[in-house]
Design a protein around this nucleic acid. Structure first.
Ligand SMILES: [Mn+2]
Ligand SMILES: [Mn+2]
Ligand SMILES: [Zn+2]
Ligand SMILES: [Zn+2]
Lengths: 143, 143
DNA sequence: GACCATGATGATAATGATTATCATGAACAT
DNA sequence: ATGTTCATGATAATCATTATCATCATGGTC
């Protein structure tokens, strides 16, 4: 269920930037968070057509970008697949185990790895900002 | 300098698959390995036009895929950038530190991280096959 | 060397996700 | 209620990648 908190974050962001509340934006937020998975623009667009007939593909796309900007979503690009967006409210940083058969994403986190990454960057005179760790293989059901 | 070994690997692969040696294939291999960096199809295409006038873009693209198939190259996709290909002959597995300003790739490797990744996968009933670790930030010259 | 089957090439078009454009409609401060 | 300006939705543009296809070239055979 989508908390009021996420809605507030979005509304505050819109206000700050001088942007407007719209029926579409409300529904995009609702459906995106209720889906609660790594979703493509197209998938979200198709879901939204039921609640907001006539909604445009570009509107969904534009607002996913907006959600990313205010930290409520994150774009995930895997190889050549189309972009996916994951809800980020209340989600800590995590990495992904990606099943090469069924496509399932398992979200994981390992503090030791995170720390070693920082050390590795440091050792190369590199200031890390963010990182992406994806492990491809086969999940329990698929191996 | 490109060793005979890489050429042999390529030729053996072509023979196995019933494919043919061509002037274009020879030059693509030569130029790709002498460039020795993460290169796009377009960049390689432009370099090749000097040695093989009239060479086609599609030919370069097709043969980079071929080089990947026989293990002499690896495709690197970073976000929405166009695909890059890196020579893999004699290269061990490594990860990348990617400068968000100048675009430089620093190749790194950390055994501890590699081992922890396997443990992490194991702990999630996941059989890892390969992985991708990219750390984005700023290099020595750009921070 | 000539011949032939078939893969390779290069020009071009198709594809498809993403992004831009623009006329019209809607939000919201006054 | 009005006006300004942003948002929307339809549509087109973009652009890397991939497919198509007529023609050429390779490598095996005689
Ligand atoms: Mn991580
Ligand atoms: Mn690694
Ligand atoms: Zn699976
Ligand atoms: Zn740099």
């Amino acid at each position: 269920m989508i908390t009021h908190k996420a809605k507030d974050i979005f509304k505050d962001y819109l206000f700050e930037k001088g942007l407007r509340n719209t029926r579409q934006r409300e529904e995009i937020l609702n459906v995106f968070f209720s889906a609660d998975k790594h979703i493509t623009v197209e998938e979200l667009f198709n879901m939204l057509k039921k609640t907001v007939p006539g909604i445009g593909y570009a509107t969904v796309h534009r607002n996913l970008i907006l959600l990313c900007e205010c930290g409520l979503a994150e774009e995930i690009k895997i190889g050549k697949q189309k972009s996916r967006y994951e809800p980020k409210f209340g989600h800590e940083h995590h990495d992904h185990l990606i099943c090469m058969k069924c496509g399932r994403f398992i979200e994981v986190n390992d503090d030791k790895i995170e720390k070693l990454q920082d050390k590795l960057a440091e050792a190369n005179d590199f200031s890390p900002v963010r990182h992406k760790l994806e492990i491809y293989g086969y999940c329990k059901e698929c191996r």
